[in-house]
Amino acid sequence: MTPANSFWTEVLQGGLSGYILLALLIFVIGLATVLLRRSLLMQFMGVELMINAANLALLAFARFKNGDVQATTFYLFIIAVAACEAAVGLALIVGLYRHRQTTDSDRADALRQ
């Protein structure tokens, strides 16, 4: 079997590189959402997607490299911080909407009205 061929069987059977590749794809979609969509709420969801991709890569490495308990504990901390980020970020979006009546990031490009 050629190296390229074995790489793709590994990916399709759910080996480590399959998980990493999937995490990469999710991260790229999240980044594209943040960069290309204009609504702040869509950008927020893209950020959540990117955090998820990072978590997936972390736990996949943990499973295949024998570091499981530490990684799950770390994952716990990550989602606690993500929950904080969600609360504060959404509060900021609501606050912006109160002042400007918009959730469009292009319309909120100045610090004062």
Binding site: R37, L41, N52, A82, A86, L90, V94, T103, D104, D106
Partner: peptide, 27 residues
């Protein structure tokens, strides 16, 4: 946490702000 809490929070904010559609681009 994610599909339970965070997404529900986001959906609540979307409905609260009545921002169902993306606004048309300024430029």
């Amino acid at each position: 946490v994610y599909s339970g809490a965070i997404v529900v929070l986001v959906l609540f904010v979307i409905m609260l702000l009545n921002a169902h559609e993306e606004e048309p681009a300024v430029k």
